[in-house]
Design a protein around this nucleic acid. Structure first.
Lengths: 218, 218
DNA sequence: CGTCATTTTGAATCGTATCAACTATCGTGG
DNA sequence: CCACGATAGTTGATACGATTCAAAATGACG
């Protein structure tokens, strides 16, 4: 069945390789976009869907360094890729040949804007990892996914489908899957969120969630 | 006395504001370059010295998000500054008016290269905060400061002067000052480093330090 | 409807934080 | 130049949040 999805995707896969080194691809969930250590030849922008950037330690520890949603730059580093990029949902990803980027000031300006946003996003994640509690981390992530993904569900509520497992959430937030699970349940116990299936979360109280995510005045 | 240094610096302070919105300033240690929430008007590159970027939580928690050494981009974010920048040593900092950056492709290319390095640096810090132990964090920081700052001291040894207090090191590494201090002493106990004054560290065994900093195959 | 992966829960343990001295260092003024 | 107070660093005892290990419960999917 995994194979089926892959084949289906390959069919859609080839985008129009039209002008100046731009390429758009559609990928199924759990597909590798590029691998750690690969040379960086293109800049990737997520048009639609959610992609994770992760780094694996030699001893098995894993850090999901960044999540990139629609409009966000996935990677445009110096030297080889420092992380592996993998889709979490069906994705449309546009990439630009780096040699061509230099030639087009307009394109460069656009990518720089996205790159600057990526810096800010990553810096914010640094403050999350450096100084937030487990509960604050989970609340922060839910807030971010809500902004990217969430559909309004009336009365200051919203619903989101989590495309990450508890394990992946943990590896993004610098905690363990058990702690992630306990934090979700704690948020539920407090009435901030609700869910029957672990991946279909309803934010019952958006304001409370924002408060719990730290970095907001109490 | 603090006043004296400031005055001295002000004297050196004004750089040649020559071509196209570039400005170079020399600042004494512990001087604010720009403040959180200030609008971003310039891109800053550290020519010489060490600068920290830090973010303050409303409840007093602090995260030192980044350290920028010679040749490294300090800030060029979207929107207002997310962090305050403060010198740790005497610094020479060049900044470029953003409106002029757009106009000069050469300058833009140069800054983009530095910006891409900043992303990688910050991503590496994410993995440090997400998945490393206190000892690994301190070892990693010493390794980085050695690369920036360190002077060879024979037989695979090096000496560095730490321009950060234990408290600042802790706020950079997502630990407490006590844990930072204990980690330093643990490294000393193991013979990896040595010091009499807390800020004048000698790396006795560079290879062992690299090994302890994690992310290296054992 | 059975199998496998994911999630949850519980209990014990561990690493780091916290709180509280104590010591060392440094800049300052007597 | 030395004594002083202030700041920074170290150390110890205890507490707590998160991890670890184990097992049960739930959910996804053929």
């Amino acid at each position: 069945m995994r194979i089926d999805v892959l084949d289906k995707a390959s069919a859609i896969g080839t985008g129009l390789a039209g002008e100046c080194g731009r390429r758009t691809r559609t990928l199924p969930p759990r597909e590798v976009v590029f691998m750690e250590h690969d040379p960086v030849r293109r800049a990737y922008v997520v048009e639609d869907g959610l992609v994770m950037l992760h780094h694996l330690f030699p001893d098995g520890r894993r850090q999901i360094v960044d999540l990139a949603g629609p409009g966000e730059l996935l990677s445009w580093e110096e030297g080889g890729h420092a992380c592996t990029a993998e889709t979490l949902t069906f994705c449309r990803i546009t990439s630009y040949e780096l040699t061509r980027v230099d030639a087009s000031p307009d394109l460069q300006r656009d990518l720089v804007r996205r790159l600057r946003r990526a810096v800010r996003r990553t810096q914010e994640h640094v403050t999350l990892l450096g100084r937030k509690t487990a509960l604050e981390r989970v609340a922060s992530l839910l807030g971010r996914l809500m902004d990217i993904h969430g559909k309004p569900a009336g009365q200051g509520a919203a619903s989101i489908v989590l495309p990450l497992t508890r394990r992946e959430i943990a590896d993004h937030l610098g905690i363990t899957q058990e702690t992630a699970s306990r934090s979700f349940n704690e948020l539920r116990r407090r009435g901030v969120i609700g869910y029957k299936a672990p991946s279909r979360v309803r934010i019952e109280n958006v304001a409370a969630l924002a408060l719990l995510s730290g970095s907001l005045r109490p």
